[in-house]
Design a protein around this nucleic acid. Sequence first.
DNA 1: AATTATCGATAACAAAGCTATCTATTGACT
DNA 2: AGTCAATAGATAGCTTTGTTATCGATAATT
Lengths: 210, 210
Amino acid sequence: MRIGELSRRSGVSVPTIKYYLREKMLPEGERIAANQVRYSEEHLRRLRLIRSLIDVGGLPVPTVREVLAEIDASQPSVHHAVALAHRGLPVLTGERSDEPREEARRYVESVFAARGWTVPEDHPGFTALVEALARMSLLNQRGFFECVGRYAELAEAIAEVDIDLISGHTDVADVVEKAVLGTVLGDVVITALRRIAQEQVFNRRMAQGG
Amino acid sequence: MRIGELSRRSGVSVPTIKYYLREKMLPEGERIAANQVRYSEEHLRRLRLIRSLIDVGGLPVPTVREVLAEIDASQPSVHHAVALAHRGLPVLTGERSDEPREEARRYVESVFAARGWTVPEDHPGFTALVEALARMSLLNQRGFFECVGRYAELAEAIAEVDIDLISGHTDVADVVEKAVLGTVLGDVVITALRRIAQEQVFNRRMAQGG
DNA sequence: AATTATCGATAACAAAGCTATCTATTGACT
DNA sequence: AGTCAATAGATAGCTTTGTTATCGATAATT
């Protein structure tokens, strides 16, 4: 198909498709003539993947490019691809370590030790978690700390479901893509479900207790 | 204190503080002279709240302003404040309803019916959820649908913890602020924990099964 | 033959979020 | 009292991000 049809079927404007081509997020099509390029169903699929990561997952364009590069690699790594995909999280690595941050860090370490989790200090998830708790502490909301253990337990149950979803597949590229989507769109799904569940629980308790 | 000290103690530059004042996110200080304003500890706290919502929660500035306005309201509503705070989610309401979207919508409704959840069709969480699943469907990842039920169950367990945290407090403004922080920073906490838990579960299974 | 689409390159645009500049005060210190 | 840094308020500028528009030359379509 030509770029016009690709645009129509994907819902992405022609200039934007050209932009993605320039940014190497979309591979070049098959050159038919000096001035003519043909695109395939694969391009359509790739475009849908890009748009999903951008407007559902909220990933910035450069991150999408990196994630796609990893998916396209000859030896793609699930671990690396998902790590890249997590650039949606606040990146808060270079922060100074003042007292509330140290307190939060010690607390998280104790919770993880209790669960038998082993996490490197510079893990993006770890630093994001510490940062969130440090802010809570700064805002005198230290009561939140007590929830972290229970959240961790439930996060583990979620992760079991996540890993179930990708295990049993052998094609590496497929697993990587599933992992990326499961993580990025999965975050949206879980956040949305949490939001809805909060209302259900809230309403139920209002009805019961008053 | 004067604006310089406020800047030093909060880590926010003077021009940025002035910007937040212009944007009505930070209330005006006490006017000492025609050309002199005094700020309080409350301003410092507010500034920390703003920065937490922006750089940990990732909320856009206009959304932060709305959330703060609700917190400041004479009769603040937890429901409304949290709804505003959820503008971090992809806002995908005006989407056309094509076949994959309809399929996703029907599926979500069946899952909710099974759990006894009642949700209006235009609920932001609902539309975000439907959109995420529709994209999965478009990308031939319909296997993800089967996880939604389990995710919903776990989301409900998370929501129980969330509601526990804010119940038992009587001051309305305090409850609203706790709810907003619990939702916005809580999302970051849960996402980070999920990411870490995925690695733990993955490594554990590798060790066991191979 | 006439119209429309496409190509690649480059420039323009819009929003978001800060940051810088400017002038007239004002406070702090010697 | 005199000097110098800080402040207020207003306005303009900057950077990044993501997208869109323009253009001249070719190619496809009717």
